[in-house]
Amino acid sequence: MIAVALWIGFAAVGLGTIFCLIRLWLGPDAVDRALALDTLVVNAVALIMLLGIAQATAIHFEAALLIAMLGFVGTVAFCKFMLRGDVIE
C-alpha cells in the first residue's frame, strides 16, 4: 500500500515540478521566476523525502535540509538584488 502511494506521490510531485518549470519559462517578470525557483526547491525537498521513504534510509535528510537552506538563502538574495540592485551593501 505504501509502495502505491509512493508511486502516486512521485508522479504528483514530478508533475508539480514540471508546472514550476513552465512558470519559470513563461514568467512575465523576474519576481515570477524567483517564486518559481523557490517552489522548485520545495518540490525537490519533497521528492528527496519520498525517495528516503522509498529506500527506507535516513541518509537523504541532510541533503534535503541543505537544499532547503540554499533555496531560502538564494530566494532572499534574489529579492535583495531586485530591491536594491545589490545583495550585500
Binding site: I2, A5, G9, A12, V13, L15, G16, T17, F19, A46
Partner: peptide, 15 residues
C-alpha cells in the same frame, strides 16, 4: 503521503 502530494500539486498548479 497522498494528502501531501495532493497539496504539492495544488500549490504548483496554482503557481
Amino acid at each position: 503521503i497522498l494528502a501531501g502530494s495532493f497539496f504539492m500539486i495544488v500549490g504548483s498548479f496554482g503557481l
